[in-house]
């Protein structure tokens, strides 16, 4: 296990390096410089050149890259150009909260509803709940969340006026965006848990447990769920990252000051250090979550040895 995790961490470092190189190159190809945006309009060309020199941006790209790499290894991600001289880590963490809140709410609501729907659907196979769940599952995956968000904003926010839209102050502002985001995890969870539960319910040990008179609830929670939850964990891992780190479209629709918005903003302003910092943060978060999911399997199901091959039946 320790060796497995160690190997995975090694890959992560390589992956991170590839991402850093790729992002750095792409970023430098972007037209413009950090100091020719509206915010720095008043700077004369000489002042702009001076600013570039001060941050070492006049050097050849490989030199800049090595310097950046060196600083990063020492734990210094640099400062933002746009938010003058504020450290990148602080810029990112100040925008992290709203994204996390909306994402976490969406995941929790989606999982809770999705899992219960899926399990009930499997118990009443081909019944009303089952058909209903399948329709929800197909729709939830097919309807883009920004369309849901736009419609929710228009009908619930504007027409009915039930919930606030267009600003970010109180908790109630996070309800609509969370709702818009929760459909995808809901649909995915419902779909996978349904298929798996159906599969498990047909197995001999379930029949045995049933014949011994075990109650349905106990049967589902103690005997079925543990086996059927595994694929859901796999699927959810990458979804968690996507949601927690903010869906760009949702953030712009509901004007949430999250890190999705920060990313596009920083790319538009050529805020190099923020782009790099954010990409690294996102990638690390992504890879760690997937690793965590892989390790979680073996905890939920001791039969799966993480290092070994995962063979089908």
């Amino acid at each position: 296990m320790a060796r497995y995790i160690g190997r995975r961490l090694l890959y992560m470092i390589v992956t991170l390096f590839v991402i850093v190189v790729l992002t750095f190159v792409l970023m430098k190809i972007l037209p413009g410089s950090p100091f020719d945006t509206e915010r720095f309009e008043k700077l004369t060309p000489e002042q702009q050149a001076a600013a570039l020199e001060r941050y070492g941006l006049d050097k050849p790209i490989p030199v800049q890259f090595l310097r950046y790499l060196g600083n990063t290894l020492r734990g210094d991600l640099g400062t933002s150009f746009y938010y003058t001289n504020i450290p990148v880590t602080r810029v990112i963490f100040s925008r992290l909260g709203p994204s996390m809140l909306v994402g976490a709410q969406a995941i929790l609501v989606g999982l809770a509803i999705g899992l219960s729907l899926g399990i009930v659907a499997a118990c009443r196979h081909n019944g009303f709940v089952d058909n209903f769940t399948m329709v929800i599952a197909v729709l939830g995956i097919s309807v883009p969340n920004f369309v849901v968000a736009a419609l929710l904003q228009y009908y619930v926010g504007l027409k009915l006026g039930w919930l606030p839209i267009g600003f970010w102050k109180t908790w109630s502002c996070s309800v609509l965006p969370s709702l818009a985001l929760c459909f995808q995890p809901l649909a995915t969870a419902a779909r996978f848990i349904r298929t798996e539960t159906l599969d498990v319910l047909q197995q001999d040990y379930i029949v045995t447990a049933r014949s011994k008179g075990m109650s349905q609830a106990r049967l589902l929670l103690k005997h079925t769920l543990r086996n059927s939850i595994i694929p859901v964990i796999t699927i959810m891992a990458s979804m968690v990252v996507n949601l927690l780190t903010g869906s760009l479209a949702i953030e712009s629709i509901f004007s949430i000051p999250g890190i999705g918005g920060l990313f596009t903003e920083s790319v538009k302003n050529n805020d190099y250090n923020v782009i790099m910092g954010l990409t690294m943060f996102y990638s690390l978060f992504y890879m760690l979550t997937i690793l965590l999911a892989d390790v979680t399997y073996s905890l939920v199901d001791p039969r799966i040895r993480v290092a070994g091959e995962k063979e089908g039946e």
Binding site: Y11, M12, V14, V18, I19, M27, K268, T279, I290
Partner: peptide, 17 residues
């Protein structure tokens, strides 16, 4: 190595470049 890359970020960067 490639699996670890968050694709959306890279796609957006490409689109802007």
């Amino acid at each position: 190595v490639l699996v670890g890359i968050p694709s959306l970020i890279i796609v957006i960067l490409f689109m802007m470049v």
